[in-house]
């Protein structure tokens, strides 16, 4: 949870100002995604490392809260809007933001982890492992990366490069998987185009 009680109350206070009560939804989601993350981490690395998974998750959650607060403040300035209840009630937004924070933690603490019981199986926990853990579409993860980098000054150059590589990988392949929300976006924009100009003659 937030680094210090004071900081936590600031976040909760600003979330309330932005139009939502964080206790019920954000905290519940952090808790339930935490169970999933720790389970998947332990499955991947071994039960002996469950505590490590838990610590990594807590670091990710702290970063998630900090970036969320900075992001909302930046949006408030940019849009001169105070109510973000629609965004704050968007489950995919929160899951993507938390996944991005966790990806940074996982990349920071190393890419592979050998099994805790000493077997040689190496498990690659680097991107896109976190997408599979939360069953998150790559394109939804992609949508938070640039804003995350914009509002989080503490990211190292290496980490920014890592996130950029994630972006490229998503745009080059992961976003084009059959169930990607990118296709819906393309369809919608085509339909919007279709409404603005005449339909093409069937011959073309």
């Amino acid at each position: 949870l937030p680094q210090t009680p004071v900081r936590g109350t600031n976040l909760i206070k600003s979330l309330k100002c932005f139009g939502m009560n964080p206790e019920d939804s954000i905290l519940k989601r952090v808790e339930s995604l935490g169970h999933i993350f720790k389970k998947k981490f332990a499955e991947a690395v071994g039960q002996g490392c469950a505590e490590i998974g838990s610590q990594r998750y807590q670091l990710g959650v702290r970063l998630y809260y900090r970036v969320m607060e900075s992001m909302l403040k930046s949006e408030e300035e940019r849009l001169s809007v105070h109510n973000f209840s629609k965004l704050l009630n968007d489950n995919i937004f929160h899951t993507s933001l938390l996944a991005c924070a966790l990806e940074i933690v996982m990349a920071t603490y190393g890419r592979t982890a050998s099994q805790s019981d000493g077997t040689s199986a190496e498990t690659d926990l680097s991107f896109p492992w976190i997408l599979n853990v939360f069953d998150l579409k790559a394109f939804d993860f992609y949508k938070v990366i640039e804003s995350f980098i914009k509002v989080e000054p503490s990211l190292t150059r290496d980490m920014i490069k890592h996130l950029e590589r994630c972006e490229h990988r998503i745009m080059e392949s992961l976003a084009w998987q059959s169930d990607s929300p990118l296709f819906d976006l393309i369809k919608q924009s085509k339909e919007r185009e279709g409404q603005t100009d005449q339909p093409e003659p069937t011959s073309t």
Partner: peptide, 21 residues
């Protein structure tokens, strides 16, 4: 960060990307 290629245009941000504008 200088060497990150920001691609969002003016008037585009996280609210627009999640259709919450």
């Amino acid at each position: 960060p200088q060497d990150y290629h920001f691609g969002l245009e003016e008037g585009e941000g996280i609210s627009e990307l999640f259709d919450c504008d």
